[in-house]
């Protein structure tokens, strides 16, 4: 299982990374492994508001569907449109080309509540 050391995490296996003023969001390598071949990613629209801990979309394999939760609150500034035709990018490159949305955060303090890579690693170990 790969972990992006630059990112912060949610227990529900989303990652978040700060890029300039925005937060970029995806699901972890562990999450994509658990789901198997991803066939569809449902994402919000640019301009939608999201709230920390609330579902903003879902990711689907042939036999399962999981909600994706927002690591921080704010407004969606970009969505990864490539995933529409190539959902397998989430399997192939979960921290890179498989990113999902960008958020302009409304509350900078929310970032501090996210899990560090080390803490997230422990969560995954405990699950196993």
């Amino acid at each position: 299982m790969a972990i992006d050391m630059q990112a912060r995490y949610l227990k529900s296996h989303e990652w978040a990374r700060q890029e300039e003023d925005e937060i970029i969001v995806g699901i972890s390598d562990h999450a994509q492994e658990q789901l198997g071949d991803i066939v569809y990613v449902e994402l919000p629209e640019v301009g939608d508001e999201v709230a920390q801990g609330e579902a903003f979309g879902s990711v689907e394999s042939v036999k399962a569907a999981s909600d994706i939760y927002a690591p921080v609150s704010g407004v969606v500034t970009a969505v990864n449109e490539e995933l529409e035709d190539a959902p397998e990018l989430v399997n192939q490159d979960p921290y890179g080309k498989g990113w999902m949305i960008k958020i302009e955060p409304s509350d900078p303090e929310e970032w501090d509540a996210l899990l560090t890579p080390e803490a997230y690693e422990k969560v995954v170990e405990e699950e196993a």
Partner: peptide, 12 residues
């Protein structure tokens, strides 16, 4: 497209 369906999503 079975992930829309009740046996996977149940109440959703």
């Amino acid at each position: 497209l079975t992930t829309r369906e009740q046996h996977i999503r149940r109440e959703k």
